[in-house]
């Protein structure tokens, strides 16, 4: 499903609450199990959030990702020596694509994607969409995709919602 809405309407906050990163009153269910029935780390392994601005704590890509993730990296257009690259020298678009691979490496059942293609050109956006959709199909997973782009929403989502006056309203695709 995709979610759209004006800046500050609460899209990112909703994703953070779904990932149980902010205190909230709601109850979240995944395959019939409430989020409180799992520990928070277990929940976040199943429900993985990719923030709009990913952050890194080691110097190189290889310290965050392993060789077994190379197929995903190559699917996003990276060469095989990407693991030796220095994080500081990456563009924001490269960081965003790597953050997606890092998220998929944990094999979550739900992907919470906060504007994952905000810094990508058309070709990279297409590669990212293809990778996400093939992952969802392969793993029988679902994604909540926050995007400002209505065309992208129609390409990737089966359901579309929009934030209006603090309410999440369904929209026809």
């Amino acid at each position: 499903m995709s979610i759209r809405g004006a800046s500050g309407s609460g899209k990112s906050l909703l994703l953070r609450c779904l990932a149980d990163l902010d205190p909230h009153q709601g109850r979240i269910y995944l395959n019939g199990a409430e989020h409180l029935s799992l520990t928070a780390p277990q929940w976040r392994c199943k429900v993985g959030l990719m923030p709009a601005t990913p952050v890194w704590w080691y110097d190189t890509v290889g310290e965050h990702l392993e060789r077994k993730h190379l197929p995903h990296l190559e699917a996003l257009g990276f060469s095989s020596d990407v693991l030796s690259w220095n994080i500081e020298r990456l563009s924001s678009g490269e960081q965003q694509r790597l953050a997606l691979v890092r998220l998929l490496a944990h094999e979550p059942e739900v992907l919470l994607l906060d504007e994952p293609s905000a810094n990508l050109d058309q070709s990279n956006t297409q590669q990212m969409e293809t990778l996400v959709l093939s992952y969802l199909k392969q793993r029988q997973a679902v994604a909540v995709w926050v995007s400002h782009d209505a065309e992208q929403a129609s390409r990737v989502a089966q359901q579309c919602f929009v934030f209006q006056q603090r309410h999440l309203l369904p929209q026809t695709l």
Partner: peptide, 12 residues
């Protein structure tokens, strides 16, 4: 942001 990114990846 780093702490929260680590939490997002399932770390305690």
């Amino acid at each position: 942001n780093i702490i929260e990114q680590r939490l997002m990846l399932g770390q305690n």
